[in-house]
Amino acid sequence: MRDSIPYIDFGGEGPILHFAHPNAYPPAGFRQFLEPLTERFRVFAVEHRPLWLGSKPEEMHDWTVIADDLIRFFDQMGWQQVIGVGHSLGAVATLYAAVSRPDLFSHLILIEPVFLPPEVLQMTAENPDAGAFNPMVAGALKRRNRWESREAAFARFRRKSVFERFSDDALWDYVNSATRETESGEFVLAFPREWEARFYSMPPQGVWDALPKLNHPTLAIRAEESDTLWPPSWQMWQELQPNATFIELPDCGHMLTLERPSQVAKIVQNYLANDL
């Protein structure tokens, strides 16, 4: 375990706002979403455990490990009453951390959290080996992870449907953050595909128990074309946390903070302007 957890300081002035990033997407790639927030906030983003050199996927047996890292990072920084923003994996980690240590947060912004339906979670809990056969696990493990240049990586990603709504600038931010240069001059994934698959293989089981325990003002954001936060889960979340603010953004998918970064930033800004 590292003595000091790495992070990025995006700058700005005002209350502290922390961003917890998704699975397989390093925080530096979210510049277009986070920079507008520096107009009113001091913005930071932790680097989750998979980005630590030498970390091993076997270290994680539950997503609460990432939440524990988040708590340790906040304590490392001496923070309390932080605005906690999280996307996907980062939203779940922020949720767990806020339930465990409510003193650390003032507000929560949960974007496309991985809240799978209870029946799906029960099935995976009863069949723990089934995760290995999850097509997302197989896809992650087969993902290309080595290129001769960042230009080659960009050209390959540009053809992928998952990135079709990313602007070129957003895609370059992703490429520059998601790859690192090796001593041989090649570029490899900074977020190892084995770690990405590990998260897919063991979805977070405790989210539905955690949600009713939240007492923080919360903004919930869903992409209308989400393949992660399904409509039944979206409805169930509203029933479990009726005092939260729920917003659905059209014409975007799960990676809306990279597909529509300025729009999502504006939603966050407007919410906090009305609530702070």
Rank of each mutant, 00 (worst) to 15 (best):
R72F: 06
M77Q: 15
G78V: 11
Q80L: 08
V82I: 14
I83E: 08
I83V: 12
G84V: 15
G86W: 02
H87D: 00
S88I: 00
S88K: 00
L89D: 01
G90S: 03
A91T: 00
A91M: 01
A93N: 01
A93W: 00
T94L: 02
L95H: 05
Y96Q: 11
Y96V: 01
A97T: 05
A98F: 02
A98K: 04
A98E: 08
V99E: 12
S100K: 15
P102K: 09
P102E: 14
D103I: 10
L104D: 06
F105L: 11
S106K: 11
S106V: 04
H107G: 07
L108A: 07
L108D: 05
L108W: 07
I109D: 12
I109A: 12
I111W: 02
I111G: 02
I111R: 01
F115E: 02
F115L: 15
P117H: 09
V120K: 12
V120S: 11
Q122I: 06
M123E: 11
M123T: 04
E126M: 12
P128A: 03
N134C: 11
P135E: 06
P135V: 03
M136P: 01
M136C: 04
V137H: 05
A138T: 12
G139R: 09
G139C: 08
A140P: 02
A140T: 03
L141M: 11
L141A: 07
R143T: 13
R144V: 13
R146A: 10
W147T: 10
E148L: 13
R150D: 08
E151V: 13
A152K: 11
A152L: 13
A152I: 05
A152F: 08
A153H: 07
F154S: 05
A155F: 07
A155Y: 05
F157C: 14
R159N: 10
R159P: 02
R165L: 13
F166A: 10
D168Q: 08
